[in-house]
Amino acid sequence: MTNLIDREIIGRSSIESYKLIVSSPNYSFDILKNTTTKIHLFLDVLNESKLFFNINENSNVELILISTGNASYEVEINIERDSSFKFYTADSFDTDVSITKSVNLKGINASLYAYEFIPSNSSSITGAFKLNHLYKDTKSEGIFNYLSNGNGVINRDTISTMEENTFNSDSSENIKGLILSETSRIDAKPILIIKCDDVHASHGCAIGTINANEIYYLMSRGLTYNDALRIICKSLINPILREINDDEFLNATKPILDKTIGE
């Protein structure tokens, strides 16, 4: 793993891994056109910052972004035409922060698959995930999973905007929240803003406490209550772990999950 310097041109290698201590206000990264790459980015956010990514045309990029630290940050990503971007992100903060992620689908056939996992057991995490369709034939799919325990508060908006002239574009967002304690809460708002007639857009949101029947079912096979709780909480990230099959994401999310559940 290497430390990443401000303004980095990334391109053409298959897997790149960076650790970034975020202390200055702005960082920007260009992904060269015709690039296929997978990037691991581990952020330690020490000051309020903004990160920019430009994914140039005809590229296939997977970004795995794990953030910790004690300051708010924003990420803005531009996806140019014929590029696909898979964005897997997990954020774990002990202090109250605002995290905003904006993805702009700027060219024809630009596509986004986003997965966001935010757990909290003591802090208030606010902000938004914005999926901005700015051009026709663009596609976005977002899965947003939240877990709160202790006194944790998660207050997130997921906003999918389909601007004028985004014909034949498609957007879906699904939010799932699991509340583990009586003193924690999750407020999630899935928002669709549609300014064009000929688009597909959908959203869903399910927030609730642990299902006692699920716990009972698992315990009836010999798992302890804590095992059962853990396995249900882990179900929030399992589908993504299966999909990306990425050890670094697994290794980074496991302690986050353990900490939130209280182990």
């Binding site: 079912y217 396995i231 249900i232 882990k234 179900s235 399992n238």
Partner: peptide, 10 residues
């Protein structure tokens, strides 16, 4: 009961 996100195997 159904348990989403947990495979039978695990």
């Amino acid at each position: 009961y159904e348990i989403s996100g947990v495979t039978n195997r695990d």
